[in-house]
Simulated assay, not measured.
Amino acid sequence: MNICIVTEYFPHSTDLEIKGGVEVCAFNESVELSKYNNITVLTSNDENNSNDFYINDIHVICCGDKRGYTQKGSLLKRLNFMKDAYNVGKNLKDIDLVIGYNFITYPVAWHISQKLDIPIVARYHDVWIGRWINTMGITGIFGEFMERHFLKQDIDLILPVSDYTKNNLLPYFPENKIKTVHNIVDFPVVESKPYDKPTIACVARLVEYKRVEDLIKAVNIIKKEIPDIRCKIIGTGPLENELKNLTKELKLEDNIEFLGFVEKHEDVMKVVNSSDVFCLPSVVEGFGIVIIEALSLKTPFVAAEIPPVVEASGRKGGLFYEPKNYKELSECLLKILTDDELHSKLEVEGYEQSKNYTKEVIGAKLNTIFNNLKIDKKIK
């Protein structure tokens, strides 16, 4: 098949310059699908990209004005990207299927599907209806409208990354057109030595719903029992200065290190691999792919108890705490940091759980679904 993938952001090399879970999902699935199909990716004109390039057999076409990564705002540039991506997509030759990967790209993919009379698939990570404004601010009005409008269209298939997301879609979309397919986890092969001091790793965008402040407050409590505790936070975002100020206010400058944006995914995973425990304090996730990556590296986790992460982990390899309860978060982290027997148990069971997300299994499943969709469309 000839498949067009529309994703707002995409790496510019196999080093997988990481930005977010959606981008990792789009990249991994593009790589696996390219084993069976011809893949064309329409994405933003990243400042590091040329306008048109290849990653192995994947043809990447950059659309819109050159711009950096952003998760909120930048409305005019995002609209320009959408317009340009549609204009490019509608002129692609012999495309059999188009897939959108986030709220910005769903409308683009849908219009391309209408123009070329081909099936459209939406890879769905989370349902934000009713949460847009609280999570994203005033710009969330645009997202709320777009998501509600899109789910009213004649979409051939929605593929949520979890049953949790599927259940949240049911009030807005027919169940017979929804199939859960978990994310591919392209397990990193990294070599790194353990840190010489007890260390917590966190990989998260520095935005409100990731609740990184809860981790900082938990470290403040942990420090009383483990004075040399270290916490390495990877990620950037609008709350960066606020979180750094909180760190200074609590006098944790020697304990908490902000690593910012780490370009290579391998380097991100080295930090996770070298740490004693991984923490995901987020209260909003579509799947929690970084949890599975941590399990594959035999790094136990502590996470806020939200359905997508519970589903992804199968409650194996880590401990859960009540969302936003930083005192309980500190207790869970201390358990893993101070109990060697528990740590070893979580290492083993977590690693076994991670095997459920191999790229070969998920890639073959996606390819079968897409081929069947193409056949069904022709019959109709």
Rank of each mutant, 00 (worst) to 15 (best):
N80Q: 04
V98Q: 03
I58Q: 07
I61Y: 11
N49E: 14
G64W: 10
G89N: 02
D46V: 05
I99E: 08
N49K: 15
N91C: 09
G64L: 08
L42T: 12
T70E: 08
Y106W: 11
I39L: 09
L76P: 01
N37L: 10
Y106P: 04
K77C: 09
D57K: 15
T40S: 13
N49M: 14
G89T: 06
S44P: 13
I99A: 09
M82H: 01
Y36S: 15
D52F: 09
L97F: 08
F103T: 10
Y101C: 01
L92W: 07
N51F: 13
L79T: 06
N45M: 09
T105W: 01
T40Y: 08
S44D: 05
L75T: 13
D84G: 01
K66T: 06
C62K: 09
N87F: 06
H59F: 08
L97K: 01
C62E: 02
C63S: 06
Q71W: 04
K83R: 15
F81P: 05
N80S: 11
N38F: 12
L76V: 05
V88W: 00
Y69H: 12
C63F: 10
D57E: 15
E47M: 13
K90G: 02
F103A: 02
C62S: 13
G64R: 03
Y54W: 13
I104F: 01
V88Y: 10
V98A: 05
D46Q: 13
K90M: 07
L97E: 00
I104L: 12
D94T: 01
T70N: 08
N48W: 12
R67Q: 14
Y86N: 11
Y101R: 00
D57M: 02
V98P: 00
G89M: 10
E47L: 15
T70I: 12
V60C: 06
P107D: 03
N49P: 04
N38Y: 04
N49C: 14
V88S: 03
Y69G: 00
C63K: 11
I61T: 04
P107K: 00
I95A: 08
N91L: 10
N102Q: 04
L75G: 05
L42F: 10
I104C: 01
S74Q: 12
D65Q: 11
T105N: 07
N45P: 05
C63L: 00
L76I: 15
G100K: 01
K77V: 03
G100C: 05
L79V: 11
K90Q: 08
D94A: 02
F103V: 12
K72P: 00
Y101A: 05
D46L: 15
K66C: 06
D46G: 13
K66G: 06
T70W: 07
N80K: 13
D84E: 13
Y106D: 05
I55G: 09
E47K: 14
G89Q: 01
D52Y: 15
L42V: 03
Y69M: 06
F103D: 08
V88G: 03
D96M: 07
I39F: 12
N87A: 10
N51E: 12
G73R: 13
N80W: 01
I99Q: 11
P107Y: 00
D96K: 11
N37T: 13
N91S: 12
S50M: 11
C62Y: 02
Y106T: 00
L76A: 11
K83E: 13
N80H: 11
G68P: 05
Y101P: 03
T40G: 09
D46A: 15
R78P: 02
L75W: 08
D57V: 01
G73K: 08
